[in-house]
Amino acid sequence: MGSLAERNGYDVGLHLLDRQVLGADDRPVGKVDDVELLLDDGGALVPTALLLGLPALLPRFGPRLGSGLARLHRLVREAAADQDLPLVVDFDLVEEVASDVRLSEPSPRLLHRMAHERADDPRRCRVGDLLGLAVRCAALPRHSKVLDLRMVGSPNGSGEHRVAALLVGPGRPGALLGYDRRSEPGPAAVAAVIHWLHRHARVVELGEGVEIDNEAGEVRIRAGTSLAPLRG
């Protein structure tokens, strides 16, 4: 398999989240602390922006620890009322995703603070909110969660981007460490352990049988929806 750029499809959690963002002038801008998704009119989940800064990072620490830390952050940064919203980098500015995320413009004046209306828009959500959502499905073990989101399109290309499938299974998001992809063989011993730990993980295409319910904080997969094994 070729490099990320040549591949059609990538995993948001693995290939995009937590990578270093560099401006066109090579200066570090920040980390991809979260990614914003938009539920468009056709019902597809489309990535619209990279979110940067502590307001994007802290909620990813989980419901309890994350909200505690976020409260602490607001307390410290009370002087600036808009500081509880993350910085936004539009997805169109992403030029290349490799071991870092390179933008097409130099770093100064690149970032803007997310507007309140945008933050409250019910059609928008964050990858960090979707990862770790409980999955209800008769064919999967009881404690299954959303482990990663699989995208179509190359992060470098301009073409279509949307979430095509969910990686679901028991365990924690990020714990696959990239071993679900054939391109990352790793030390055989580590790969074998990770594969064994995630032997129940499956890929499910987004479509009729899959309902993402942000309100209830769960994903329901109807019985009979086809679940593909991770590799192959």
């Binding site: 989240l17 937590d18 990578r19 270093q20 602390d33 990072l57 990813r60 620490f61 989980g62 460490l177």
Partner: peptide, 13 residues
């Protein structure tokens, strides 16, 4: 960079 990228924000922290 690698620690944060592979272990995620929590374990990385």
């Amino acid at each position: 960079d690698l620690v944060r990228e592979r272990l995620g924000p929590r374990i990385g922290f």
